[in-house]
Design a binder for these strands. Structure first.
Lengths: 211, 211
DNA sequence: ACCGGGGTGTTACCTCGGGTAACATCGTCG
DNA sequence: CGACGATGTTACCCGAGGTAACACCCCGGT
């Protein structure tokens, strides 16, 4: 048998471990789960990042395809936005641990190129960029705007999704609404509250809890 | 002399090293830069996270205070949004390496609590949450919406700012405009492009480059 | 003058995780 | 049968976080 099947098995094992222990699971643990020892893992994947990447690509396939499909859905714009959001949230809800893997920037990147977005998410950002470029009339700045927005939107959904996953303060549908509203410019549409300026009380308290 | 001054010196050294080598600089290196050895660092900061945290809080002070002040500025809402964005971007532009430190989630967090937002950013998210809560009328869901938006906006600016810092595709002012536009709901306001549905060409290509 | 405590600093060590070298084994193909 | 390519192993290296034990130095109290 060529290496492919065994590789799959190893990925399955790694998958289980990471489901169970989260990212940061050691190579030893993964090897043990697969019933083998480290060097084999390294033979197949080169280094830890290789393993992670392979694992990531596997799951990314699903999520990325889903998001892509959602982006292509022939819906009204607002509906499409909601659809994409829901797709993403559903995806990360299904496998939280794996999701963390997808979203964590390469942990062993010492070069300081601390990309806020992991590769998987960068792909999603590209999709969004293209979608925005092709669907929204942004005038002269379209390229710049589309890319900035692609990144921004991805980061927004990442952060918000992360928070939602951890605290589950509401149903998924509700969360989708909240995010869609934000993207949809409800910030601008909302009526101003009575208070004209910000209560200075907000500026006073330095650092109360949080840590 | 009490420990405070030495502590400051150590932080300065750590600061220099991280400016130079990025986060991920080893404790040994930092100690060497300070002209001392590891155990002293540990005496002062407990563990690596302690050092990082102290360093973070130091710089966060500035950025956080600046953002807070910007949020409190008695400007028109749109202007305030731009002002806050500009403040943040200016802050990260000034010290990229340190900024990476601020934004990187705790590196040694194996618990899988993979917070997409580092503590420093979480504080900013809280500020934004409060600002939104107190300045925008969101109806019944205000608490939920405000918090979701606080996180989301922070993540958005983080990701977009990160991208901007790396590629510098435009001036800061322009970037501020782009982000403000996004937050401001230009997505909704923009006219639809002629093409009703998404060109299927976008759905076809599976995974061309990116890696 | 002496001593003790709290600061400074040191060398040397432990542990654990990523990564590798060298060696043994089994099955298949020519 | 031999060789190759896969499987697998044990045993090791290295670097990084973290700690223990020891040494110095100054200063204030008795």
């Amino acid at each position: 048998m060529s290496r492919e099947p065994r590789r799959e098995q190893l990925l399955n094992a790694a998958d289980r471990v990471i489901q169970r222990e989260g990212p940061g699971a050691s190579m030893n643990t993964i090897a043990a789960e697969a019933g083998i020892t480290k060097p084999i893992l390294y033979r197949h994947f080169g280094d830890r990042n290789g393993l992670i990447r392979a694992l990531t690509e596997r799951h990314t396939g699903g999520l990325l395809a889903a998001v892509r499909a959602a982006l292509a859905e022939p819906l009204e714009r607002r509906d499409r936005v909601e659809h994409v959001l829901d797709t993403y949230l559903a995806g990360i809800e299904a496998r939280p641990q794996v999701y963390r893997l997808l979203t964590h920037p390469e942990p062993g990147d010492p070069s300081g190129a601390g990309n806020a977005l992991a590769p998987a998410l960068r792909q999603i950002a590209e999709e969004i960029t293209r979608a925005v470029q092709s669907q929204v009339d942004l005038g002269a700045d379209r390229d710049l705007l589309a890319e900035a927005w692609g990144r921004g939107i991805t980061g927004m959904v990442l952060a918000a999704g992360d928070w939602w996953l951890e605290t589950k303060p509401c149903s998924r549908t509700r969360m989708v609404q909240a995010l869609a509203d934000l993207l949809w410019g409800r910030l601008a549409a909302a009526a101003a509250l009575p208070t004209a300026a910000l209560p200075t009380a907000l500026v006073e308290p330095a650092a109360p809890a949080a840590d």
